[in-house]
Amino acid sequence: MSASTTSKAPVADPKNGNGEAVPEKKPAASLEEDDEFEDFPIEDWSEEETQIPGGNTHLWEESWDDDDTNEDFAVQLREELKKLGQK
């Protein structure tokens, strides 16, 4: 049971509105704090509309890296450690 079933829906029904933009523009953009969340252009949207192309995979990765055998630092480190071993 959602509010949009009432005669005067307190929410804009996305189906009736066809995702039509709620014409509410903020006139004072320059005054806003940087981390202030902006008003969305529409009030409600479906799950399908939130799907990001390519999905939500591959957004995060491990913080460590194994594929560094040729990297400068790894090579240098090996050199340094080798020197220690020879002492």
Binding site: K8, A9, V11, A12, D13, N16, G17, V22, P23, E24
Partner: peptide, 14 residues
């Protein structure tokens, strides 16, 4: 129309 946001919009200062 029964759409609250449309009514709200008629009271907009913009």
């Amino acid at each position: 129309s029964g759409q609250a946001w449309r009514v709200a919009y008629t009271l907009s200062p913009v």
